[in-house]
Structures are given as structure tokens and as C-alpha cells.
Design a protein around this nucleic acid. Sequence first.
DNA 1: TTGTACATTCACATTAGTGAGAAGGGAAGC
DNA 2: GCTTCCCTTCTCACTAATGTGAATGTACAA
Lengths: 128, 128
Amino acid sequence: MRIGELAARTGVPTRLLRYYEERGLLDPGRTANGYRDYAECLVDRVVQIRGLIDAGVPTRIIGRILPCLDDPRAIHVADADPEIIAALERHRDQLDARIRCLTRNRDAIGAYLDAVRGLPSADRVTAG
Amino acid sequence: MRIGELAARTGVPTRLLRYYEERGLLDPGRTANGYRDYAECLVDRVVQIRGLIDAGVPTRIIGRILPCLDDPRAIHVADADPEIIAALERHRDQLDARIRCLTRNRDAIGAYLDAVRGLPSADRVTAG
DNA sequence: TTGTACATTCACATTAGTGAGAAGGGAAGC
DNA sequence: GCTTCCCTTCTCACTAATGTGAATGTACAA
């Protein structure tokens, strides 16, 4: 599909899709006239990229982990490199730390909301 | 404590601590001579701020949710406002979405690492 | 007095994202 | 063929957010 359709289907502006390509996150082919040509599976990938960026993962890192996530069972030759394995482990641990931090804060917000809603409104305006 | 000690204890440069203050995330008192004076509990808060920023939460949002997380049981008067409650629910849902996305990717990386390590090195370099 | 820590301020770097202009591709209709 | 219209190309420049560097001056203790 062309860039306009991908933009419509993902909600990501064409300008941004070109930006992600510049950052190495997408590599669409080209049709004879030079237009970008996106495979169907890139719809999911764009959504995944958005999610990771929203979650604070820099594009530099996303570019490194994305190739491994297409299909975890398809091992790439270069990945035998212990350096790459170590880097992936670091990325995984960083994601882990992020998840723990976000979970703690999400739960704290949840507890706070529960506390606020658990009070009758009369108490609510006088408490604190 | 003064800014230098807080920086030493959190690993966050003084410059950045002043920046967070400028963004409304910290509000230290001042001693008579104009030095910033940080309470003990701000050590934890700085660590929490760092975690949230690393996890992609903008300072604008952090400033809104932090006051509620000091002690979820201490309800503030202004929080009876349904708008604030709705905003907190949105933030919590966004955190939820981030957590799901990060978890998916962390697990995918984990599966990939397991697959790579599960192969004897001879297979590893030919697979893919 | 000298050195360290603190203050403020201006400027810069990087990353993510956007706006706008100029030009070409291609299909529909005259 | 030619116009019209939309989509595409690329490029330059710009914003906003996070974070640093450096200059200049003040507070205080050895």
C-alpha cells in the first residue's frame, strides 16, 4: 500500500511515517515511480512503534529490538554475536524497570481514586 | 538538605534538579541565605520522577499525579473536582496502555533470547 | 584569602514531531 | 492533448521537551 493508506489505517501522519523511515524503523520498498510501497504487516509494526515511543523507548533502541520481535523463533545470523545478546538483555532489563515504575504509579493512582470515590461527597470536601 | 547532597544521593545532577523545580515537580524551601532546602522525603520523590520520565511520562503529567501519590489516603480538597478525577483516570489508563505495550515487548525479547540461547552455537549461525 | 557550593541566566544539544514549499505521478474529465 | 485534482516526492526550517554547559556572582568555611 502507499503511504497515504498506511497513514489512514494507523492514524500516523505521512510526515511521521517518513520520519520513522529516516530513523531506520521502517523500510518500505518503492514502486516504479518512486512511491513508497508498504507491506500489509507494517500496519501492526507502525502501531507497535507508536506504543514503544509513547512508552519512552527511544527510536535508536526500537530499531535494535524490532527485528527480533517480528518472529522470536526466526533467529538471525548476526544475533549469534554475544554483544547483541548482551544489548538485548540490557534492553529487556530496562523495559522491566520501566514496567515496574509505571505499575507502581498506576496502582498508586488507582488506590487514590478508590480512596476519593470511597468517601461520601460531604466527607470529600472536608477531608485533607 | 542542600542541592548538592540531594544530587549525590539520587545521582541526578544539580542542574537537572533545578530544571525539575522550574517544571513544577519540586518545591524546596529556601534557607536564609537563599539556598534551596530539600526535605528528606524528596530523595524518594526525585527517584520517582526519574522513573516516570524514563518511562515516557511528560513532566506536565507528572506534576499532576505526584501530589496524589505522596499518600493515597490523604485526600486533598481540590480533588473532589470531577474534572481532576477524570483526568487521573485518563492518566491511569494511559499508564495501563504503556504497561501492556512494554510488557508485550519485554516478553518478546525474552522469548527471542530464550530461542537464541536454546540453540547450540552451530545451529545458531546457520538458522534464520 | 582561597576554595567549594550555591545562585541565576543565556545558550546550546538532542530527540520527536510538524509546517510549508516546490516539483513530479497519475487518474478523471473536457 | 490538456487541465484539474490529489497524492506523492524531497528539503528546509521550525517547535517542544529534556537535558547540559558555561559565565558571572554570592555564601560560607577552612
